[in-house]
């Protein structure tokens, strides 16, 4: 027997990278977030071997949920194969032994940056959205302590005013992605920089959505079957992106969220942003989608425009 033989093996890294203390803290905070839909829960936010701002908030949530039997889908801008999505998927599966898929309906956990899949998610699935800035009022109040007081007072006057000013100046609301929403009639929330096309998908959804900002150290949730409404004026309804007439060059599909790809002659080609859905359309039978082929949202009357 030598000293080297006697020494215990030092394997260095925990299951799913984070140590148990970190996971327990995240889990405690996730439960509070679910109990307070749309409310930003502060959390410690561990450093991961991925740069801050590259999805470390979402990644921490995923790592606190994931187990070896999970099937994980990771997307960035709707694509499974974009470099950041590929890298995060490689990391998650490497540290957890979970399987991965590009099929939104087969995944148990979907981590996403900037998109919600076109196919309707179902009960039991968890959508983890990466959040660069959790504060919907950042543009009108940069002091986060003051913004927190405004949330406490449900004082969203400045935000309404900002939307109103856009109307006066441009005759329409010019907010693009990250369209602010009211959750369970209490908290205004940033849905993360998803396009307005995806915003309605959070309303009365069957799945659980967890949103996390690693750098800003806040996480929040939209439980299943919860009211989520975009801020809109009675006479100026909320509008999704107008992509009518755009046809996906790969599938011929219409009325799904498209990427616009510039051509050299100044025109544009269009392609669906959700690559998992493209794959399914080409090779299999896709499930129900949030918007039908005519662009109607599945909950009738929710989008008024």
């Amino acid at each position: 027997m030598t000293l080297e033989q006697l020494a215990l093996e030092n394997h260095g890294y925990s299951y799913a990278f984070l140590d148990e203390f970190a996971k327990r803290e995240l889990r405690r905070r996730i439960l509070k977030a679910i109990a307070l839909p749309g409310y930003q829960v502060p959390y410690a936010s561990r450093e991961l071997p991925i740069a801050r701002g590259w999805g470390t908030g979402g990644l921490q949530v995923t790592l606190s949920l994931v187990g070896p039997e999970d099937v994980v889908k990771v997307i960035d801008q709707g694509a499974d194969d974009s470099v950041n999505a590929a890298n995060l998927r490689r990391f998650i599966t490497r540290v957890s032994d979970a399987a991965s898929t590009t099929d939104a309906t087969q995944a148990t956990i979907i981590q996403s940056r900037h998109r919600i899949p076109e196919e309707r998610l179902h009960e039991g699935q968890v959508l983890v959205l990466q959040v660069p800035d959790p504060e919907p009022m950042r543009s009108v109040e940069h002091d986060i302590s003051r913004a927190r007081e405004m949330h406490a007072d449900a004082d969203y006057g400045l935000l309404w005013l900002a939307l109103y000013e856009q109307l006066v100046r441009y005759r329409r609301v010019t907010q693009g992605a990250s369209y602010p929403v009211m959750v369970h009639k209490r908290y205004v929330m940033s849905p993360s920089p998803i396009p307005r096309w995806d915003t309605p998908k959070l309303h009365q959804a069957a799945h659980l959505t967890l949103l996390a900002a690693g750098r800003e150290k806040r996480l929040y949730a939209v439980p299943p079957y919860t009211d989520v409404y975009p801020l809109e004026f009675t006479d100026v309804p909320f509008k999704v992106e107008d992509q009518r007439g755009w046809v996906c060059i790969r599938t011929g599909a219409q009325n799904k969220f498209m990427n616009e790809i510039p051509n050299e002659d100044g025109t544009s080609t269009h392609e669906m942003s959700d690559t998992g859905y493209i794959e399914k359309l080409l090779n299999a039978q896709p499930g129900d989608t949030y918007y039908d082929n005519n662009g109607n949202f599945y909950i009738r009357g929710y989008i008024r425009s």
Binding site: A51, R52, W54, S82, R115, I194, E241, N259, S273
Partner: peptide, 18 residues
């Protein structure tokens, strides 16, 4: 530093929305 270099990531969905 992380936030600074995150701007290298694709933002075409948000850009399209804008």
């Amino acid at each position: 530093s992380g936030f600074c270099i995150h701007y290298k990531l694709p933002h075409y969905v948000t850009f399209a929305s804008g």
